[in-house]
């Protein structure tokens, strides 16, 4: 395998983004196989530790997918998630990581296409960034 193939972890909320990813499937919309999805109930349950840990473990990018603002199944979890991600991005720099490695996106249950597009775009962006510089197996 010549080209660098980024490894991406996707934390998707059960109600919108996971369902949107399902819809991409039912609609057979193709996207690169680089993403590994971890289903969570709401984007607000994604602990920043998960994100940092994933990067430490060698993920080249982390995607957090939630419902559109106002649509969160738990009222406003997505706003809380966004706040945390913004804070976290500030810290990433100090770890020597580009903040474009962590994405938060709103994908609704009916946006299969958007999910596929997001993954495609993310894979492209991270291919350009190159591999995660943090050595793997470097425990925090």
């Amino acid at each position: 395998m010549g080209e660098f193939e980024p490894k991406i972890v996707g934390f998707l909320c059960n109600w919108c983004s996971y369902t949107g990813a399902d819809l991409a499937g039912t609609s057979r919309i193709q996207y690169p196989p680089n993403i590994r999805v971890i289903r969570v109930m709401c984007s607000s349950s994604v602990d920043p530790i998960y994100i940092v840990r994933a990067l430490m473990e060698g993920a080249d990018g982390v995607l957090i997918g939630g419902c559109h603002p106002g649509d969160c199944h738990y009222i406003n979890g997505n706003y809380k998630a966004r706040r945390r991600v913004v804070l976290l991005k500030n810290i990433l720099g100090t770890l020597g990581l580009e903040e474009e490695r962590v994405w938060i996106r709103w994908v609704s249950a009916s946006e299969g296409q958007k999910f596929a597009d997001t993954v495609t775009e993310m894979v492209d962006t991270i291919k350009k960034l190159g591999p995660n510089p943090i050595p793997t197996r470097w425990d925090i």
Partner: peptide
Amino acid sequence: CGTCVAACPSGAIDQRGFKDDQILAMI
């Protein structure tokens, strides 16, 4: 929803079926 789990500074809250050790094991 798990909001409190992610927010707890002491790691004292866990969500059944989505516990920290379960998610971290996946990662």
